[in-house]
Amino acid sequence: MGRSIDAVLFDIDETLVDLQAAMGSTLQAVGAADLTHFTAADWDAYTALFAADPQGHYESYLAGRLDFADQRVLRLQHAREQAGLAPLDSDAARAWNDAYEQALPRYFRAFDDVVPLLDALDARGISYGAVSNNVHDYQRAKLDAAGLERIKVLVGIDTVGVSKPDPIIFHEGVRLLGAAPERTAYVGDNLRVDAAGAVAAGLLGVWLDRTDNPSPVREDSMPVPADVHTIGSLAELLGLL
Rank of each mutant, 00 (worst) to 15 (best):
I5D: 05
D11F: 06
E14Q: 15
D18H: 13
L19G: 04
S25P: 00
T26G: 03
T26M: 02
Q28G: 05
A29C: 06
V30F: 04
H37A: 14
H37F: 02
D42A: 13
D42M: 09
D44S: 13
T47R: 09
T47P: 06
A48D: 13
Q55M: 10
Y58V: 09
E59D: 14
D70Y: 01
Q71P: 11
L76M: 06
L76Y: 00
Q77I: 08
H78F: 13
H78K: 05
R80F: 03
E81S: 11
A83M: 10
L85G: 12
P87F: 00
A92P: 00
R94Y: 04
A95M: 04
A95P: 03
W96M: 03
D98R: 15
D98H: 12
D98T: 12
Y100T: 04
Q102V: 11
R106S: 07
Y107C: 11
R109F: 00
A110T: 04
A110F: 01
F111Y: 15
P116S: 12
L117E: 10
D119W: 04
D119V: 11
I126C: 07
G129E: 07
G129T: 06
A130E: 04
A130H: 03
N133F: 11
N133H: 08
H136P: 05
Q139L: 07
L143Y: 11
L143E: 08
A146I: 05
E149W: 00
R150D: 04
P165M: 13
D166Q: 08
F170K: 06
H171R: 12
V174T: 08
L177D: 09
L177T: 08
L177P: 02
A179K: 10
A179M: 10
E182L: 00
R183K: 14
G188C: 05
V193A: 14
A195P: 03
G197Q: 02
V199F: 03
V199L: 01
L203F: 04
G205E: 06
V206D: 06
D212I: 02
N213S: 14
R218L: 14
D220T: 14
D220A: 12
D227K: 04
V228C: 01
H229G: 00
G232R: 14
A235R: 12
A235W: 01
L240D: 06
L241P: 00
